[in-house]
Design a protein around this nucleic acid. Structure first.
Length: 338
DNA sequence: TCGATTTGACCCAG
DNA sequence: CTGGGTCAAATCGA
């Protein structure tokens, strides 16, 4: 049983626990119970199928997973079928243009780099008295048209509730959550806590990866102008950095992606921090690469917090540098790279 | 009491 | 027309 299956199993368990803990409140809401049960059943069903097929050839495993995803998803991306990334597999941080629809592109990337995995939305939001809105409400809902977005993948807390997104050194205020078509998990919308105080335009979107509930895809939009970070996070976030996809996906053809860097390009001496789990096939170069980057991140977050320096800027500029060097161009994804 | 979160409604780009 | 992003009232919790 691979880590992917374990992750899915754990997620199913957490859903069951949630249902159990909320059961007293849900007694009067049979629809919510049905929805929860359905969702839990689906998760465990996939786990069961994966386990039962674990001894089967990997291609059959892929087909099993893919069939589940096709069952779940409205849109299956036309990308090469790939093996799931293990929980610690690295997905490159991806700068995204603001004009690009985050959801669509995110799904495209997720599909291209992990598995074509975009599911039908989960259960509709639980019944809650509708909040009345003024019919005459006129608001400007301009999207962040020309703002550059930065996308990173972060691992959930290794301990505690895996549904809590990782901290990143800033304080955020959640202002929305939405079920995204083609995604198994809802997307949460955050803006900087100091938005009003400092007119800080920073926002971020957090969404759990369909194919790996232990990972969050965090899309940052806008730069922090407040320069006010929170206290040191209790758990160091684990942004996922660029690495050789052939390392992540041993089944992939060696030339996919064509310009993927060799692991030697990414190598750096170091050891894996205790909070950073090894992945399946994580060779020395992989561990060293992550360690190197994470050291940089930690240093940037905690040692570079001068008043005139935004730690996330440091992180992203550093990662940008890596990306510019190592970010492969992805065929067939149509992914903007600016 | 007040700030944070939830969540249905609304707006608008594609 | 659809779906992502945002608003804001209701609700939660410290």
């Amino acid at each position: 049983m691979d880590n992917q299956t374990v992750s899915l199993l754990l997620y199913g368990c957490s859903l069951a626990r949630d249902l159990e803990s909320n059961l007293p409140d849900l007694v009067s809401q049979p629809d919510s119970i049905v929805n929860s049960c359905h969702r839990i059943a689906r998760v465990f069903s996939v786990v069961q199928e994966q386990i039962s097929n674990v001894s089967v050839h990997h291609h059959q495993h892929d087909a099993q997973v893919a069939s589940f995803m096709q069952l779940q998803h409205h849109q299956v991306q036309q990308v090469p079928l790939q093996r799931y990334s293990p929980p610690s597999a690295a997905l490159p941080e991806t700068p995204v243009t603001g004009g690009e629809a985050a959801g669509a592109s995110a799904s495209r990337i997720a599909g291209a780099r992990q598995l074509a995995a975009d599911s039908e939305g989960p259960d509709p939001a639980g019944g809650r008295a509708s909040s009345s809105s003024s019919p005459s409400r006129q608001r400007s809902r301009r999207r962040n048209g020309d703002q550059v977005r930065k996308r990173v993948n972060m691992e959930a807390h290794l301990y505690g509730n895996p549904e809590i997104p990782p901290e990143d050194g800033f304080t955020w205020k959640k202002y929305g959550q939405k079920e995204i078509l083609g995604s198994f998990f809802p997307r949460s919308y955050y803006r900087c806590t100091h938005q009003k105080l400092c007119q800080c335009p920073a926002k971020k979107q957090v969404q759990r990866l369909d194919s790996n509930p232990h990972f969050f895809q965090v899309t940052y939009c806008g730069e922090h102008t407040c320069h006010m970070s929170s206290t040191t996070p209790s758990v160091v976030p684990l942004p996922i950095v660029s690495r050789d996809m052939t390392d992540v996906h041993p089944m992939l053809p060696q030339q996919f992606p064509p310009q993927a860097p060799s692991t030697s390009q990414l190598s750096a001496a170091g050891t894996v921090p205790p909070w950073m789990p090894m992945d399946f096939d994580g060779g020395p170069s992989t561990a060293a690469t992550r360690d190197d980057t994470c050291t940089l991140l930690v240093d940037a977050m905690f040692n570079s917090g001068s008043s005139d320096t935004n730690s996330m800027d440091i992180i992203f500029s550093s990662m940008d540098g890596q990306d510019h060097q190592h970010q492969p161009s992805w065929p067939d994804t149509g992914e903007a790279s600016d």
